[in-house]
C-alpha cells in the first residue's frame, strides 16, 4: 500500500474516532496536537486502525509510537 493511501485511510479513521470532520493528520501529528487524544482514546484509535488495515500492533508499538508517521511506518511493514 502506498504511503499516501495509508494516510488517506488514517485520516478517515482519525476523523471518525475524534468525531471531527475538519481533522487532517500529517507525518508529524501527535497526541499533543489533538485535544481528545488521551490514553483512553488511543486504545480506541489503535483498535480501529487494526481493524481497518487488518493487522495488529505489538504492545511495544502501541506505547512507543510518537506520531502518526511512526504509526504509518508500522502499518507499511505489517499490512
Amino acid at each position: 500500500m502506498e504511503r499516501n493511501e495509508i494516510f488517506e485511510k488514517l485520516n478517515e479513521i482519525f476523523r471518525d474516532v475524534f468525531d471531527d470532520e475538519s481533522l487532517t493528520v500529517t507525518e508529524e501529528t501527535s497526541a499533543a496536537d489533538i485535544e481528545d487524544w488521551d490514553s483512553l482514546t488511543h486504545i480506541t484509535l489503535i483498535s480501529e486502525v487494526e481493524d481497518a488495515f487488518d493487522m495488529k500492533f505489538s504492545m511495544k508499538e502501541v506505547v512507543g509510537m510518537k506520531n502518526v508517521g511512526e504509526m504509518a511506518d508500522i502499518i507499511e511493514r505489517e499490512a
Binding site: I43, T44, S47, F57, M59, V62, V63
Partner: peptide, 15 residues
Amino acid sequence: RDPKLYAIAKMPFSM
C-alpha cells in the same frame, strides 16, 4: 480479549 489491552491498560475485554 486482547492481551495487549490488558497488559497496557488493564482492559480485560477486546473492543
